[in-house]
Design a protein around this nucleic acid. Structure first.
Lengths: 242, 242
DNA sequence: TAGTGGTCTAGACCACTAG
DNA sequence: TAGTGGTCTAGACCACTAC
């Protein structure tokens, strides 16, 4: 048996998404969850804490766990989710055109300096792709993958899903990412790949992704047409952090 | 005594910030924390889980809690932090000019529709402010505060800090916020208040803030000069959500 | 083998909400 | 008063890392 609290989390999440537990109503109480799932109270509380953290519920003392408005998945992304996963979740068809592939490249360190990167001359695999959504090229993704961690990235993985390759084939465990969003004028490459005019603006998302052993291994610069960009975030106020 | 795990969290966080525990080193083990603070293991684990969630550490099984690169606070904001708090943390001096104040306004519902707002004709207090950073006006904030929750917002609170007024004076408990970032062309008001040219772009952050009892009460449209905008985010990959 | 973190339990006491 | 969530405990067993 695996992770009881994760099973409870998944079950409750699906029932919220499926409106078994509707917006504005309360989940079963913690004691009821103990009986329903045959678990101890702290185990159920872990599942509830994760639901609260992810914006599904608000816990109210003396009352219960209230289901709240939840809109996590919006294009392009909040959290760490691969495009393939996201496209499936949203029932969008995205095409994925690899327009540059360089197995022996070098990391453009300067671009990621503000994210705390202090490598120099790191050997990487470079992959540049255009994401086509509804027959319109909207996003350029430039990925730099450290060869010290992933010696080789087959082109086929770039055409399908890098995450699937890292996690399913190489069995790497992706841990966390730091990302930074800025706005910048479109450059020549942007204008060419996305068919933009002079004076166009881009939303640029630069991110550094690390494994669960804390090795940073993937550096991504994602450049979005400004008019198609939308980022959603859910955050809790930290009175005390717990 | 309050919240032991929060005390432990604060202490560890300060020691990480103060480099008592340096980047790339390990915190004391969970058993050591039990002895150090006189707590049970689960209590210490709560503190560690919160540190991991906020990007201070990466827990590695069999090894320990590794201190990782952490850059949460960057202007303008990630998470729910007031400008006043942020300015203090970053040692920035921001001026705050209220240029419009309407005690009997109406919520512009359409602007917040994509955030799940379905109110109509809600009476609000309207506050419009310009944030001046380093003698340059960079941000317009338009706040709409529901009169059903906060009957009155004194102008003085708008000139100081709305959060301080809500939390310290009214003792409201702010719970969470949903925010959305988009990129939009500057409008006439933007150009006038921020002295921008035609063709300028803005980063627009719209947010809905709710109390811990899940009542949405504050709607904010924050409009940033594109070239000054920077948003940073830390996210964990959810293999399983716990 | 010893030490680390990951999970789960059963029980306790407290603070808040509702009737 | 009964029911809810908030916190903490002491102990157990497991999986992984390092030696």
């Amino acid at each position: 048996m695996v992770n009881k609290s994760a099973l409870v989390y998944d079950d409750l999440m699906q029932k919220i998404d499926g409106e078994v537990y509707k917006l504005g109503t309360y989940l079963p109480s913690e004691n009821q969850l103990c009986e329903l799932y045959g678990i101890s109270r702290e185990t159920g509380r872990k599942a509830l804490a994760a639901l609260a953290e992810n914006g599904y519920i608000q816990k109210i003392r003396g009352k219960g766990s209230l289901v709240i408005e939840h809109r996590q998945y919006e294009f392009p992304v909040s959290g760490i989710v691969s495009y393939k996963e996201l496209a499936q979740k949203l029932h969008i068809t995205t095409k994925n055109v690899v327009y540059d592939y360089e197995p022996n490249g070098t990391l453009p360190v300067a671009a990621f300096a503000s994210l705390g990167v202090d490598l120099t001359e790191a050997p990487v695999t470079v992959i540049k792709r255009v994401r086509v959504i509804d027959d319109e090229p909207d996003i350029i993704d430039k990925d730099y993958i450290l060869k010290t961690v992933v010696p080789e990235v087959p082109k086929r993985a770039a055409e399908d899903s890098l995450y699937a390759y890292f996690e399913d084939e190489l069995e790497l465990e992706i841990g966390y990412a730091t990302k930074e969003i800025t706005m910048e004028p479109a450059n020549a490459e942007d204008r060419q790949q996305l068919h933009l005019d002079d004076g166009a603006y881009m939303a640029v998302v630069r991110s550094v992704t690390s494994l669960t052993d804390a090795r940073a291994f993937q550096f991504t610069e994602s450049r979005h047409r400004a008019d198609k960009f939308r980022f959603r975030d859910f955050a809790r106020r930290q009175h005390n952090p717990l």
